[in-house]
């Protein structure tokens, strides 16, 4: 097996893997929204409500000051 062949296999499997991951991700996005686990669209509001003192959409427990 020369380098060309290796390259071709690496390419093939990596691409398949990433394509599967991408579709998995799409599924995940819609599924978790349907099941009500997570609402992705609410993150869009991060840009709109972005004062220092506005309430975070998801608080970071590690941050210095909790409000």
């Amino acid at each position: 097996m020369d380098i060309r062949e290796l390259q071709a296999y690496a390419y093939f499997f990596m691409t398949i893997l990433l394509v599967v991951a991408l579709y998995g991700y799409i599924l995940h996005l819609y599924r978790s929204e349907k099941k009500g686990e997570k609402d992705y669209e609410k993150y869009g509001k991060i840009a709109l409500d972005d004062e220092v003192d506005s309430t975070p959409i998801e608080s970071n427990p590690k941050s210095k000051s909790e409000k």
Binding site: Y43, I57, S59, N60, P61, S65
Partner: peptide, 11 residues
């Protein structure tokens, strides 16, 4: 590292 908003906005 010091963020209050845990979710990273897409930007």
């Amino acid at each position: 590292g010091i963020r209050r908003e845990k979710a990273l906005y897409v930007s």
